[in-house]
Design a protein around this nucleic acid. Structure first.
Length: 506
RNA sequence: GCUCCCUUCGUCUAGUCAGGCCCAGGACGCCAGGUUUUCAUCCUGGUAACAGGGGUUCGAAUCCCCUAGGGAGUACCA
């Protein structure tokens, strides 16, 4: 692999990119970076009927969020511009003509309605209609008509398509980096349309022409394309071009049952299937995204990278540079992977606890502001340091730390029953008086003071601390009590104790 | 239906190319115990798999064959 490595990610802007597509882009990116090659973004919008406004921008934004950037694309330009197939429309015609001239393709005048009817009839007889070596002999095409007939139909502007002529009785031998050698008999293939009656090429033609023109060295794409590989291979042969190397990635499967992960699965099962939230311009439907759900892009990317690929070591946490260094197509598995939302949360947790308290505090501060709290970063940072190990997401921080910012409004009934005894009010009263006398109010000072106070009075640590926790937090949870008190301060601590004693009387 | 691809714990996977180091290792989840003033974290332990059947071999998760199951494709969509 010493030649120039050039890979492309070639999405169709027909909707949002789901995580399977993101993974394909990621593997392309890792492969390109690993080998010092180029990553190209090509927009495959040859289907005029399926264009969805905003989809292209969504794809680019999603990938940028993941840290995947392109060396050549419509936005950044490049030596093979344009990078959008609709902008390259004029280019494909000559290649279609070339194939007709060389006898590798032919004109077909069958209307969609006629073909639909043939398919129906075949289906009724439990068969499948295919446009192939057998059936093309009886259909309306330049193989069955005289040259004059064909010319006059074209002159009369009768709509037609160009179909690829699959060679008879030959074997197509392909080599896939992930799957190895694959052999298919040509008679099982059908004469695919290369050029549509609307003047646009189909995916098959455009893809081969562009990959060749853009000097793509490796085509890394989803397994759903594997059945098209024989056609693509034949197309390269017909043009007399050297084909790139292929790698067909295993599919991402739904967590429950079988089948490939689809857009619908996410909201059905309660996890995002899209990197970013997507608001469908046509249906108005909103699909959740990883970004909006609170996932860190690096955690998301890490999770995705390990879904179908593994380094062969026991390392699980990789930043982008480490992924690039470790990645290889040879270590991509062959079988589809069921997506596991639980492990994805675990990845986010790992990233969250490894990020600095300051960084997390910055994110959490925004949530606090929205709730109307104006807290200085230093305090938030301290709170974060005390609770971040308890959560998977920044947006879960509030539930674990609200008591640092506001006094409890309710007190957990279960805890009251268990921890609030007859002598608790008096004990708490006395404890509050002791705390009020402290000059230094930091964790160590508080701990020491309480310890000696307990000893002097002969109280048990468990009973006292749990009752106090009830007053300060309102529930049986949270970090070390002295830490909480140190953060909220002496006055607030004493105030909460007094208020709690009052409220629990009733 | 036809073509192609795939098959190790519930899930992600190591091991398969170069058969013995694997009565199968790691991670997530789950369960139990420990630490702890609470909850959580954390620590320790446990649970659980070579799809089935034939062969080849002294020896097979690994090689060969068959069966079963799953998936993808089968458009003037990509």
């Amino acid at each position: 692999m010493s030649q120039n490595i050039r890979v492309r990610f070639a999405p169709s802007p027909t909707g949002p990119l789901h995580i399977g597509g993101v993974r394909t882009a990621l593997y392309n990116y890792l492969f390109a970076r690993k080998h010092g090659g180029s990553m190209i973004l090509r927009i495959e919008d040859t289907d005029q009927g399926r264009f969805v406004p905003g989809a292209e921008a969504y794809i680019i934004e999603s990938l940028a969020w993941c840290g995947i950037h392109f060396d050549e694309s419509d936005a950044v330009g490049g030596p093979h511009a344009p990078y959008r197939q609709s902008d390259r429309k004029a280019l494909y015609r000559q290649y279609s003509d070339q194939l007709i001239a060389s006898g590798n393709a032919y004109y077909a005048f069958d209307t969609p309605e006629e073909l639909e009817k043939l398919r129906k009839t075949a289906e009724d007889n439990k068969q499948t209609f295919t446009y192939n070596a057998e059936s093309r002999k009886h259909l309306h095409n330049s193989l069955t008509m005289s040259k004059d007939e064909v010319d006059s139909l074209i002159a009369a502007e009768v709509p037609y398509v160009v179909r690829f002529l699959i060679p008879e009785n030959s074997e197509v031998v392909m080599d896939d980096i992930i799957r190895g050698k694959v052999v298919v008999k040509s008679e099982t293939l059908d004469d695919k349309v290369l050029y549509k009656s609307d003047g646009m090429p189909t995916y098959h033609l455009a893809n081969i022409v562009d990959d060749h023109l853009m000097e793509i060295s490796h085509v890394i794409r989803g397994e759903e394309w594997l059945p098209s590989l024989p056609l693509h291979k034949l197309l390269y042969q017909a043009f007399g071009w050297e084909a790139p190397q292929f790698a067909h990635l295993p599919l991402l499967l739904k967590p429950d049952g079988n089948g490939k992960l689809s857009k619908r699965d996410g909201d059905r099962l309660g996890f995002p299937v899209f990197p970013l939230q997507w608001n469908d311009p046509k249906s108005g439907e909103v699909s959740s995204g990883y970004r909006e759900s609170g996932y860190f892009p690096d955690a998301f990317v890490n999770m995705l990278a390990l879904l179908g690929w593994n380094p062969g070591t026991e390392q699980e946490l990789f930043n982008m540079d480490e992924l690039i260094a470790a990645f290889s197509l040879e270590r991509v598995g062959k079988a589809g992977s069921k997506f596991d939302p639980e492990k994805t949360k675990w990845f986010n947790h790992q990233y969250l606890i490894r990020k600095s308290n300051e960084e997390i505090a910055g994110h959490f501060g925004k949530i606090l502001s929205k709730k109307g709290f104006n807290i200085d970063l230093e305090k938030i940072t301290r709170v974060v340091s005390l609770v971040k190990e308890r959560v998977n997401f920044v947006n879960e921080l509030w539930a674990e730390s609200y008591f640092f910012f506001e006094a409890p409004q309710t007190y957990d009934d279960q805890v009251i029953k268990k921890r609030w005894k007859d002598d608790s009010p008096a004990q708490m009263q006395s404890l509050a008086i002791m705390l009020a006398s402290l000059e230094t109010f930091d964790t160590t000072a508080i701990d020491e003071a309480i310890k000696s106070w307990l000893e002097t009075n002969g109280y048990g640590m468990g009973a006292v601390m749990n009752a106090m926790r009830l007053l300060l937090v309102g529930a049986s949870k949270g970090p070390h009590l002295a830490d909480i008190m140190a953060v909220i301060g002496k006055e607030e601590s004493i105030r909460r104790i007094a208020a709690g004693i009052e409220k629990l009387k009733i």
